[in-house]
Amino acid sequence: MAKKKGETIVTVYPAWCKGCGICVNFCPGKVLEFDEHGKAYVARMEECIGCGFCELHCPDFAISVVAKDKKDNKNNSEHKDEGKN
């Protein structure tokens, strides 16, 4: 997987995020932060190295990390739908 910065897109589904802070605290690139509701959001997308830690360790399946080129193709819309569930 991509280890260079800026090659991935990180999505947080706020509906499923419980704001536990695992992603915010353990992200090596400090990509994520809390918003005013206490939920994680992507603050610095360009710093993401695509390690996938946040995705693997989100207990609520609320973060998705995908490669940029893929995201542009098809996954984008599907992921958004699921986020609304």
Binding site: A15, W16, C17, K18, G19, C20, G21, I22, L56, H57, C58, P59, D60, F61, A62, N85
Partner: peptide, 16 residues
């Protein structure tokens, strides 16, 4: 969803 587990509970990680 989200499931019943408390924020940060590792059970969700295990399920994944």
């Amino acid at each position: 969803f989200p499931h019943v587990y408390c924020p940060g509970c590792g059970h969700g990680i295990v399920l994944g």
